[in-house]
Design a protein around this nucleic acid. Structure first.
Lengths: 136, 136, 136, 136
DNA sequence: GTGGTCTAGACCACG
DNA sequence: GTGGTCTAGACCACA
């Protein structure tokens, strides 16, 4: 019950992020937006590796990270599934990471000399795209 | 007022960015905010390296990147100075980097499961702090 | 400053835990007991791998897990160091994991038909050995 | 009173233990606490497999392990029954498993940075709940 | 079939 | 020198 059709994860060769991180980000995104819902099965390590034409170990590494972060859970011999959401980080840790992310982003944007209005408008649009969260 | 007093750049050991990038970001930030103004001289490679207790090669590499990007210019035998503002990046390059920054930031925020309103409010405040740009 | 002498981590072939997990547990233990103190450098990936006669990737995997858990932090090109302690898990997550650990342990002990007094005495001794925490 | 009503063993999808081990642990627990008493019959392999919606092979494997450990005994053509209590494990085997369990538990608790007093108090309560052992 | 671990060896960025 | 990533291929436990 609850199988994924294809799970269109894309990896871009030009992307500076390592492949495994792209997979992690992609899956995390799809779970956050509800495209991947609670209990859904993910493509197999070997399957996704073949689909993306990369080494299975790379996929396994990404899945392992997602599992240790609590996004996925493995059922022995069956595969990996979207795990029930739970609060994994302490409030202080979340705040710290949020601060870091904001700082880095502001640095970059200021360095590019882009107006505040433009930045906010863009982010408003991007973030609203993630408003419809898990329907479960 | 053509000399810098100290150039308080800070290196954080916990920061995931390489040290050279921290320097580049820091200088770019200070130029963008006007803390480092046109014509001001930067600390010498050896001086800053000693002040930060890091390898001079690392400082040199950062300065080289800033120079090639047009933020600084070297005057033979005198040292490095803040360069006159010119179009440092092509429009397409700026857009590309902006897209990347936005993408990375959105990814991180989604991963932390922080609401769009909170993100926008925070960024609004942070960006306004940089409104008084270059006095040039 | 603050180098490790040898860091006697031991891996037992008879141990059912995978090698990388043994390393993770060992380091975590030494940090928790203060044997490895804040800012101390860990043996290099290649060095520890050679010392334990295992593959460097296995050490790297263990170190990566410890880093993502917040026990260690890497300084580019320099090595890995004990990170400042911070609260990484939410209270609810901690409680959940504690419950799981207690449950599993009680299951095992009951299955072995070992008296409660004996269990408590043993644990009392084991846990007190970790009383002298970080002197920093 | 030689028949079990249902044998409420529960399988948790999030549990890191393999399903077969969950069954073994569950049955061992129920025998140890006296919920399953001497001579009681266990549900059939197929029945339990259907009830838990898992592969019959998995149940068979768990029953085989329990039988080989002396918790259950099969009566040809009748089914599996709780075996009379005998020394199921040698003293050295018991000690070995106890050591392992203690070690694993201490590792986990240390990793969660939970105080010794809290751990002991909790275990004290949990273990006392199992004081009324086998009525046999 | 599934995921998990380990080995071996390569290449990269950083200092 | 340091850690980080990726590939290739092997072996294991589990269902």
């Amino acid at each position: 019950m609850a199988r994924t059709q294809a799970l269109m994860i894309e990896i871009a060769t030009g992307d500076p992020r390592p492949i495994s991180k792209q997979i992690v980000d992609g899956v995390r995104m799809k779970v956050a937006t509800g495209e991947l819902q609670l209990g859904m099965q993910l493509p197999s390590v070997r399957g996704l590796a073949q689909q993306l034409a990369i080494n299975p170990n790379t996929v396994a590494k990404a899945y392992a990270e997602l599992t240790s972060e609590g996004w996925l859970e493995s059922r022995q011999g069956l595969g990996l599934f979207v795990a029930p959401p739970r609060q994994r980080l302490s409030a202080s840790e979340r705040d710290k990471r949020f601060d870091e992310a904001v700082n880095r982003f502001v640095h970059e944007v200021v360095a590019l000399d882009i107006g505040a209005e433009q930045v906010l408008a863009r982010l408003d649009a991007e973030l609203l795209a993630f408003a419809p969260k898990k329907t479960a």
